[in-house]
Design a protein around this nucleic acid. Structure first.
Length: 568
RNA sequence: GUUCACGUAGCUCAGUUGGAUAGAGUGUUGCCCUCCGAAGGCAAAGGUCACGAGUUCGACUCUCGUCGUGAACACCA
């Protein structure tokens, strides 16, 4: 909001000088010269055949002649080839800090149109326990959901469990083999069994083509309603979902729907009819496909696979059917898929098929891709014995390391311990940008010093202890010192970090801002001693600013799905 | 082979439609417990932004090429 006001003023001045443009005011990268800057003189120079510096001088002169200059600026200058620097006035800064505290929802702009975002960020495969690979989509998706909601939109979150694909056929094969002599109704197995059998079958099928075909057919029959398979499938779901829900709950990841692929099966025949009527479906090598390639494609985009040659459905079928069904039921404005970027081509095909079929248009569908968590060898992270690392084991390990750091940590409540484990893991993950793979470093995940979740919690608890519950009057227009000024300016940046994170679908902009804010805050109270401040007005302002800071930190931590413990 | 992503300090990473002197954490060295738990603060040191061209007043950022890493390329998810 404050940036818009600045922009408006500069724009008016430019117009009055005959320059038709909407200037871009950005954070200064030379804080020694000003708080914000405008680099538009270079572009205007070309347009109006003037030198950037003379152009800048005119603008600065006009700004300085404004009657209410002091309401906005302490100083405005133009330097070197033509950069305009703005130093904001105490009055202007304070006005917007007050608005942040006084106006509901931090005085953030509401969206012009409230939209519905449907988020799909689970993808847990129910044939086995959750492993480290499920950590990123869960954390990123949950955070995105909270950010989108906070920006004033509606959300629906779907766990989209992988519960009806080939992996289930493989596990069913193994169950029937291992429980050969047991009547189907009496077969009982647990999660550990699934965990043992799934990797084994997965490997065996890759090596043995006949076995793979057998499992494919089991999958097909399961989808067609074979009773024995259905019974076993239901048990697999029960055994597994309990564990899945427990872990997601530990992570504070919450879904509106615990649907799986199986959920959309009833609409598949209907969807196929629609597609056929539109003339989109053709046969290819015994399978049914939809052509989705375009003339300007740089690569050969393979056709979208609607039905396998044995008649079974697969992940592309269910993903499209889900879009079809979600449209009928919810009419979402956007559907976001949080899944690692190896699946990019798959989503490209699904989105094109959806667009062609007239379900959801291409531009409403987004794949939020992210890199994989790798080991030091650059390959997906595995234990020394070559197994995938279970998510629960990772979390327990982080917890143990944390408890070993300080004797007193063991005395904390379980709830607080778990909140800190969450903070460690989530902040470690969310401070990375999405598109890179990252190296899993157990030391990093166990670290509590420096740029970490605990640092943020610690900062929050410290200032809160000082100012919580204190009564304050309104903030004055006086900024008392450089630390005070820096903190107030940093608070104003909350809005742009949110907008940026929302528009780019990247929570790490918030993580980054939060850390910066914490650093500035630490600086503030290291240098401004509240207890020794004798001037009542000054003390009031300090408390005011710290209370607002505390509120901002808490709010943004929540957007990263990080809860604050009672003590540290 | 084709296409995509990535390559920034010893290590792990930020870098907002192209802007001035490229920033953090960690590690190393040296200081600091004054309302608050030092899980903190300050300072020093650390860089040919993989490499080479091009576009531009200006390139870590855009284009092309080279090298390196990872990934995808229909009946797995």
């Amino acid at each position: 909001m404050y940036l818009e006001e600045l922009q408006k003023i500069v724009k008016e001045v430019m117009h009055s000088l005959g320059y038709e443009t909407t200037p871009r005011i950005i954070l200064s990268n030379r804080p020694d010269l000003g708080d914000y800057q405008c680099d538009d003189c270079f572009k205007l120079a070309k347009l109006y055949h003037e030198s950037p510096i003379s152009l800048g001088n005119k603008i600065v002169d006009s700004l300085k002649k404004m009657d209410d200059f002091g309401n906005y600026f302490k100083d405005v200058s133009v330097v070197n080839p033509g950069f305009i620097n703005f130093t904001l006035s105490d009055k202007f800064i304070s006005k917007y800090v007050r608005l942040m505290k006084d106006v509901d929802h931090f005085n953030l702009k509401k969206p012009e149109k409230k939209e519905l975002f449907y988020l799909d960020y689970g993808g847990a495969n129910i044939a086995k326990p959750l492993h480290v690979g499920h950590l990123r989509p869960a954390i990123i998706g949950e955070s995105l959901k909270r950010i989108i909601k906070f920006m004033g939109h509606n959300t629906l979150a779907d766990a989209h469990l992988g519960d009806f694909g080939l992996q289930i056929g493989e596990v069913i094969y193994a169950i029937l083999r291992d429980f050969k002599d047991v009547p189907v109704d009496e077969i009982k197995f647990d999660l550990a069994y699934l965990d043992k059998v799934y990797p084994e079958m997965s490997k065996a099928c890759k090596e043995d083509e006949n076995l793979q075909i057998t499992c494919q057919n089991i999958t097909k029959d399961l989808q067609d309603g074979n009773e024995t398979y259905q019974k076993l499938w239901k048990q697999i779901c029960e055994v597994s979902i309990e564990d899945v829900k427990k872990l997601y709950s530990y992570l504070g990841v919450d879904f509106d729907f615990w649907y799986g692929e199986s959920e959309c099966f009833p609409v598949i025949p209907e969807m196929k009819e629609v597609l056929k009527k539109k003339g989109l479906v053709r046969e290819s090598e015994g399978a049914l496909v939809i052509d989705v390639k375009k003339d300007d494609d740089k690569i050969e985009v393979p056709p979208f696979l609607l039905e396998k040659s044995n008649g079974a459905s697969l992940y592309s079928t269910t993903d499209l059917a889900c879009i079809y069904e979600r449209n009928e039921r919810f009419h979402p404005d956007h559907i976001l898929y949080v899944a690692d970027m190896r699946q990019h081509l798959h989503f490209e095909q699904v989105f094109r098929a959806s667009d062609k079929a007239g379900f959801s248009p291409y531009e409403d569908l987004e794949h939020i891709g992210f890199g994989t968590i790798n080991g030091k060898d650059g390959k997906p992270f595995k234990t020394r014995s070559g197994e995938t690392v279970k998510l629960n084991d990772l979390l327990q390990e982080v917890k143990e390391v944390f408890l070993s750091l300080k004797e007193t940590n063991k005395d904390m409540s379980e709830i607080d311990k778990d909140k800190i484990v969450n903070a460690i893991v989530k902040f470690a993950d969310l401070q990375n940008s999405l598109d890179k793979n990252y190296i899993f470093d157990s030391e990093k995940f166990a670290s509590v010093v420096g740029k970490t979740g605990p640092y943020l919690l610690y900062t929050y608890l410290r200032i809160n202890k000082m100012v919580n519950g204190l009564e304050v009057d309104n903030l004055s227009d006086t900024v008392h010192d450089i630390y005070d000024r820096n903190l107030r300016l940093k608070l104003l940046e909350m809005e742009s970090s949110l907008t940026h994170a929302f528009e780019e679908r990247r929570p790490h902009y918030i993580a980054d801002y939060l850390y910066d804010l914490a650093v500035v805050t630490n600086n503030f109270y290291q240098n401004n001693n509240l207890a020794k401040t004798t001037d009542a007005g000054q003390k009031n302002d300090y408390v005011y600013v710290l209370q607002l800071t505390s509120k901002v930190i808490k709010t943004l931590l929540d957007l990263l799905a990080i809860d604050i413990p009672s003590v540290m």
